[in-house]
């Protein structure tokens, strides 16, 4: 089926890993990629993720180097706006003082925004260019790869654990897990189950929310791309406009929830 293979081809990452049959090589099909298991890497996701992250850092670093107190202009305005945005939210939503929070929020927001924004490029543009270069699979939107979103959310999860332990101590953290929501020794196991689920759900929901939104956007764009060319605009335009909202919104939600979770981790009871 042509349409099925079109979609699955576009949703297949460029996977490099140890194949049982071919040794270290790129996977040609989804089955081969699956057979490689954990010890393989999605080269395209990693490439775009790092490239976009570098775009962010280089751009901001250049402005930071010549940042002065004079009248800002051009790109400096944009960068300063982003910095003020992140620091404002970190100040409003984060109770306490931690010099990590605002730069973390800025990095997450801008990086995720850039990665999501790859969706604005025409579906076939980058895969076609990659095809000309002899690369079989190319997914240009890193956040439609679960590995990328989980990579971000698990890092945040580690930060949550780190600051929970640092601020509350092991005893305080254990107490928080055992005596909430029911403050009685008889219900400790019950509380523990609830709180552990509550804790684990944070990174999972964070990653899956971002992944789900962007992946769904990708799939719908692919489906629209398979319509006859003269009717594509009728669905493509509204969906693209909708994504103008979704893309910054998801970046914002990811950043906001990260701050809120870390703020909770810093709270004393």
């Amino acid at each position: 089926m042509a349409s099925g293979s079109y979609i699955s081809h576009h949703l297949q990452n460029l996977v490099f890993g140890l194949s049982p049959e071919h040794g270290w090589s790129f996977a040609h099909t989804a089955e081969e990629a699956a057979a490689m298991g954990f010890w393989s890497i999605n080269v395209d996701s990693m490439f775009w993720s790092i490239l976009l992250g570098l775009v962010f850092l280089v751009l901001f670093r250049r402005v930071a180097k010549k940042a002065d107190t004079g009248v800002p202009s051009g790109i400096q305005n944009v960068v300063e706006m982003a910095v003020e945005f992140a620091s404002g939210i970190a100040r409003d939503s984060f109770n306490g003082k931690n010099p990590l929070i605002a730069p973390l929020a800025l990095t997450i927001f801008v990086w995720v925004l850039l990665m999501n924004s790859m969706e604005f490029l025409p579906m076939d543009l980058i895969p076609s260019i990659a095809g000309l270069l002899g690369i079989e699979h190319m997914k240009a939107v890193p956040t439609s790869d679960v590995n990328i979103t989980f990579g971000l959310s698990i890092s945040v999860f580690f930060l949550i654990l780190f600051y929970s332990l640092k601020v509350k101590g092991i005893g305080g953290f254990a107490k928080e897990l055992s005596f909430q929501p029911f403050n009685t020794p008889f219900l400790i196991p019950f509380n523990l189950v609830l709180e552990l689920v509550n804790l684990i759900v944070k990174p999972v929901s964070l990653a899956l929310r971002l992944f789900g939104n962007i992946f769904a956007g990708d799939v719908i764009f692919l489906l629209i791309a398979m319509l006859p060319f003269w009717i594509q605009w009728a669905l493509g335009v509204p969906w693209a406009i909708f994504h103008l909202l979704i893309i910054p919104l998801q970046a914002f939600i990811f950043m906001m929830l990260t701050i809120v979770y870390l703020s909770q981790a810093h709270e004393h009871h």
Partner: peptide, 23 residues
């Protein structure tokens, strides 16, 4: 797969860089 670990490492480096040299 390993992309997860790669992304975590990238994330840590980028946040560190942002915190140290950009912010």
């Amino acid at each position: 797969n390993l992309t997860l670990i790669g992304q975590i490492i990238t994330f840590v480096i980028f946040v560190w860089f942002c915190m140290k040299y950009v912010w």
